[in-house]
Simulated scan of single mutants.
Amino acid sequence: MASVRFESVTKRYGDGVALRELDMTVNDGEFLVFVGPSGCGKTTTLRLLAGLETATSGHLYIGDRSVDTLPSKDRDIAMVFQSYALYPHMTVAENMAFSLELQGLSRGEIQQRVQRAAQQMGLETLLQRKPKELSGGQRQRVAVCRAIVRNPAVFLMDEPLSNLDAQLRGQARAEISQLHRDLGTTVIYVTHDQVEAMTMGTRIAVLNQGVLQQVDTPQAIYSTPKNKFVAGFMGSPAMNFAEGVLINRDDQIWFQSSALTLPLPPLQSPTPYQRYLGQRVIGGLRPEDLHDPRFCPADIPTSPLRGTIHHRESLGNEVILYLTLADGQTLMARVDRRSEMALGDTVELLANTAALHWFDPQTEEAI
């Protein structure tokens, strides 16, 4: 096991910057997830650490050792790719053993490692099959097992579940998370899937356009996003945003836009907002913080808003409403599955004002 450290790591391709001044540490034994949209720099970060790319500037460390000039084979890492890259002419056991044979390990040691890894991932009965005889989920397990047998200091995983269907992804998430708990090895995982990031990572690092936006626990990323990008990217459906003005009315601060008038609850300290009084701000509210009045929790501060439902999705366990407000702006609400609000209805929802987020319209940083 080992920690990983990035010191001002930058990667350029001609005039383009894929990664800019990345400074962060991945702790020993941590499961860190890099997440962000396509082209944000997350796979580039993994390839730099793996030695498949060379940083334009900055330094990389695995443990206390600089790996800037080390070839990939000497970095003590194991990588699991989006394409499982299994040798089609080899059996499962041979695929798992191949890297160990290159290391010159004894036949007994190789067999012991292969058996142990196969048992961990439930592949004992499939060791003599070829990849073409396996399902997608089984191939994914073989790729993970091939990494396990090497006993690396760091696992690098580049969207390893993206080729699986939804049910298998859920199962594989649980298996990889359990494997991390069993092995205690440092894992750096790349995905664009927020669900994978939220459910698997001990910490999440959010990237956008090659710049690290925020790194924190999943709950902190979700509850206290550092800026508007993080707030909008993490969460599905995405956070609703509206631009308006903060005003003082009867010694209480209110948010006012062309279609919304919402009070900041008294329990919220007014100090950070004083300098924004009379100025424009961006307000944010997650869809699950808009409630059908019939099923609204009784212990939260609320304020009503009205809109017309132009689309409705019933997902069994919840209902997603798409509303058009008086000024033509749209927003989404995730309401109780028992809600009977129908397509075309003009409805009144209750906004949880304690859950409002505020962002500076110039910097887009959280207020």
Rank of each mutant, 00 (worst) to 15 (best):
L22A: 02
A18S: 14
A50F: 03
L52A: 14
G39E: 11
G14S: 10
V17C: 10
A50Q: 11
F31R: 12
G51P: 13
L52E: 15
T44V: 07
E21Q: 13
N27D: 12
V17R: 11
T43L: 09
Y13E: 13
G16K: 15
L49K: 07
T54E: 12
N27E: 12
D15H: 15
V17G: 04
V26R: 03
F31N: 03
G39V: 06
A55R: 08
P37G: 09
D15E: 15
G36C: 05
L19C: 02
L48N: 00
F31W: 07
T44Q: 04
T45Y: 00
T44M: 01
T45K: 01
V26W: 00
T45W: 03
E30H: 11
E30S: 05
K42E: 05
K42W: 09
T44C: 01
L19N: 02
L52N: 13
G39H: 14
V17S: 01
L19K: 01
M24Y: 07
Y13F: 15
C40H: 04
D28K: 14
G16A: 09
S38N: 10
A55P: 05
P37R: 13
P37V: 10
L19G: 00
M24Q: 11
F31Q: 03
T43V: 06
D15A: 06
G16I: 14
A18N: 08
G39S: 12
E53F: 07
G14P: 13
G39C: 09
L32S: 02
G51Y: 09
F31C: 09
F34K: 03
L49P: 04
V33Y: 08
D28H: 14
